[in-house]
């Protein structure tokens, strides 16, 4: 298939790529742009390891083509911190031990952040639903729920930590 030129905006930076139009967004991010924070854990769009934010919403980047993401703001785990300062949700994950092997964490953080973008005061059930698409084999999720809850309650904003 003929390659195509496209521009992806990832973490505020435009990247020009010349790629096969069938390339998945996750492949573009990892293999072509080289941001390997985003992971892959399945071939069936079921694990959430590849979750990124597109215009602030959580999307599994193995479920869309890179071409479909053109013109949107894509955020990956690498885009959460600003000038070496961690985002509140990242601090919350560290403080609650919300990762073990860490392989699910990049996707989990994106789902968590997207949930908080949309819902400032999620209930415990809403938090659980917000990360239902993300499998974590290590933690049993409760520490992740505690982290998101803490972040939502403002426990990890700049002034308080």
């Amino acid at each position: 298939m003929e390659k195509r030129l496209l521009t992806l905006n990832v973490n505020g930076q435009d990247y020009e790529l010349y790629i096969n139009p069938k390339t998945l967004l996750v492949e573009a991010i990892r293999d072509h742009i080289g941001l390997t924070g985003t992971k892959r854990g399945c071939d069936t769009v079921s694990c959430g390891a590849c979750t990124v934010m597109i215009d602030g919403m959580a999307i599994k980047s193995c479920s869309v083509l890179a071409m479909q993401a053109e013109g949107y703001q894509i955020t990956t785990v690498e885009g959460l911190e600003v000038n070496g300062k961690l985002a509140p949700i990242q601090k919350a994950f560290i403080d609650n031990g919300s990762y073990q092997c860490g392989f699910c964490a990049p996707g989990m953080l994106m789902s968590a952040q997207a949930l908080l973008n949309e819902n400032k005061n999620p209930t415990e059930w809403e938090i659980r639903e917000g990360i239902e698409g993300n499998i974590c084999r290590c933690t049993g999720y409760n520490s992740i729920v505690r982290a998101i809850d803490g972040a939502a309650k403002g426990k990890y904003t700049e002034a308080k930590s």
Binding site: T36, L80, Y99, G102
Partner: peptide, 8 residues
Amino acid sequence: DGVAKVTG
């Protein structure tokens, strides 16, 4: 290993 794991 926390920072490494939550920042990618």
